[in-house]
């Protein structure tokens, strides 16, 4: 009985989560410019459109550039901070850990509005690099959480052994610490990358009128009616996220990473 119920319940939730995506996938292969489901005819031209149409292509490039740089900046903020908290006894420095987690915990519109007012006051409103900083601050939580988990998993006796043999802090970091936390570093980067790719409101409120990222482009296009290109972009995003998270799962311990993330959120 319980097995039957379990199957049924998994099927139900699975269907709920996948149904919109199945319909969108169907729409994305329509032969003509209609949003029909089941699709009329079969064509992959709407996937080509993302790269061929200059508007969609530049939005794609903007999004990928924003995600790669902001995730890198987020990691570069999180790495020294979590290393310091692991290496030193300085309880007051935990305030920065809290500051790193705060933007992600609060409703996103808060961070977005704060940054909008900040950039407008300082006169940089609209410059593309402001979005990089905005996303880095907004998503710094993710590498921060994976890295603090990574550091807490390091066996301190390795580090002690290296120190006893005369290695300096710098050498220890490069030869012992870095290799041990690399998987956590990479997964932190991956989480920040995927979420930045999909982020709308912070990007919209800081650079919405000068730079079109893909989510902004989709929303702007939605106002003027539907095209199957939106559907193909959606599927491209879902597949990208699924591939990246599968890689994280393959090379890291996903249940453990998630266990840590949720408990740090609280």
């Amino acid at each position: 009985m319980i097995h039957w119920f379990r199957r049924f319940y998994f099927l139900l939730i699975g269907l709920f989560l996948s149904l919109p995506l199945i319909v969108v996938a169907g729409v994305s292969v329509n032969a003509k410019q209609t949003l029909a489901f089941p699709p009329q005819g079969f064509s992959l031209s709407w996937y080509g459109e993302i790269f061929a149409n200059p508007e969609w292509r530049s939005a794609l490039i903007a999004s990928v550039l924003l995600a790669t740089t902001s995730a890198a900046l987020a990691v570069s903020i999180a790495l020294p901070l979590s290393w310091f908290l692991w290496r030193r006894i300085a309880p007051w420095a935990n305030i920065f850990q809290v500051l790193g987690i705060a933007p992600f915990t609060l409703p996103p519109v808060i961070t977005a509005l704060g940054l909008l007012i900040f950039w407008a006051t300082t006169g940089f409103y609209g410059a593309p690099w402001t979005a990089v900083i905005g996303h880095a601050i907004f998503f710094v939580t993710l590498p921060l959480v994976t890295l603090s988990l990574g550091f807490s998993a390091i066996d301190r006796s390795f580090v002690e052994a290296a120190a006893t043999m005369g290695a300096s802090d710098r050498t220890i970091f490069r030869t012992v610490v870095l290799p041990l936390i690399l998987p956590y570093l990479v997964s932190g980067y991956a989480f920040a990358f995927v979420l930045s790719l999909n982020e709308y409101i912070v990007a919209y409120m800081t650079v919405g009128f000068t730079l079109e990222t893909l989510p902004i482009k989709i929303f702007n296009a939605l106002r003027y009616g539907y095209t199957p290109t939106m559907a193909s972009v959606t599927i491209l995003f879902v597949v990208t996220a699924a591939v990246i998270f599968s890689l994280v799962a393959k090379f890291g311990d996903l249940p453990k990473l998630l266990g840590a993330m949720a408990s740090d959120d609280k």
Binding site: P20, V24, P215, I218, F219, V238, A241
Partner: peptide, 14 residues
Amino acid sequence: SLSEVIIGFAWSTL
């Protein structure tokens, strides 16, 4: 991780 735009678009299609 899906964007709200994408979720909105997918459901509005469905």
